[in-house]
Computed example of a mutant assay.
Amino acid sequence: MPQMAPLWWETLYMMFIMSFMMVNIMMYFTIKNDFKSKKKEKKMFINMNWTW
């Protein structure tokens, strides 16, 4: 019979995985919103015709 890990190791591992997933989800949505706002800013700058 294989040796079992203590229950608190498993709970720590599950908490780490859950927190990792939540941080990644939050980063995904914040970066997605940042790109939307940057696109709006870019549209404002595209209207200006720069000549060199």
Rank of each mutant, 00 (worst) to 15 (best):
M1C: 05
M1S: 11
P2I: 02
A5Q: 09
A5V: 05
A5Y: 03
L7R: 09
L7T: 09
L7N: 05
L7E: 11
W8R: 10
W8G: 01
W9I: 10
W9K: 12
W9E: 08
W9T: 06
E10T: 08
E10K: 14
T11P: 00
T11G: 00
T11R: 14
L12E: 05
L12S: 06
L12A: 12
L12W: 03
Y13R: 15
M14D: 11
M14Q: 14
M14L: 12
M14T: 09
M15Q: 13
M15D: 14
F16G: 11
I17G: 01
M18E: 09
M18R: 10
M18D: 07
S19H: 04
S19I: 10
S19R: 10
S19T: 10
F20G: 06
F20I: 00
F20T: 07
M21L: 15
M21W: 07
M22F: 08
M22V: 07
N24P: 00
I25R: 05
M26L: 14
M27E: 03
M27D: 02
Y28E: 05
F29I: 05
F29Q: 07
T30S: 14
T30K: 12
T30M: 11
K32A: 01
K32Y: 02
D34E: 15
D34L: 14
F35H: 12
F35D: 08
F35C: 10
F35W: 10
K36C: 01
S37R: 15
S37Y: 04
K38H: 04
K40A: 15
E41V: 03
K42W: 04
K43Y: 02
K43E: 14
K43T: 08
K43L: 09
K43S: 09
K43D: 06
M44F: 03
F45L: 15
I46G: 01
N47P: 00
N47T: 06
M48P: 00
N49G: 04
W50H: 07
W50V: 11
W50F: 12
W50Q: 07
W50I: 13
T51P: 00
T51I: 12
T51A: 10
T51H: 13
T51Y: 13
W52E: 14
